[in-house]
Amino acid sequence: MAFLHGLGMVCILLGIPFFVSGTIGLLRFPDIYTRLHALTKADNVGLGFVVLGLALQAEEWNTVARLLLIWLLVLIASSASCHLVARAALRRKIQPWTRP
């Protein structure tokens, strides 16, 4: 049990760099599309690690199922909103930044 608890803690700590790099990408990247890349992908992997860590430490099946449900919901929500924001920007004729 202590082993699973420790493994879960490691997973949670592994998730944090992904969130941080998502934010750094959000600040550094040049246009809306590249910022969407950073936010959508990095943050979802970070959340995946946090959920995995908490699920390893959970005591009831119920909690594990609820955590997975939350993760799935966030996955759907963020990929759908990524698509919608990118589409809205593209239809507004916002040109993607290209390397000069």
Binding site: P17, S21, F29, T34, H37, A42, R99
Partner: peptide, 25 residues
């Protein structure tokens, strides 16, 4: 899960690297 994990790692590398190796299109 495997592909999206590598997606996160890829974007982390690009965001953290000082040269910012991106070439969007």
């Amino acid at each position: 899960v495997n592909l999206s994990f590598w997606g996160g790692c890829d974007v982390m590398r690009r965001a953290l690297s000082p040269a910012m190796p991106i070439n969007p299109g």
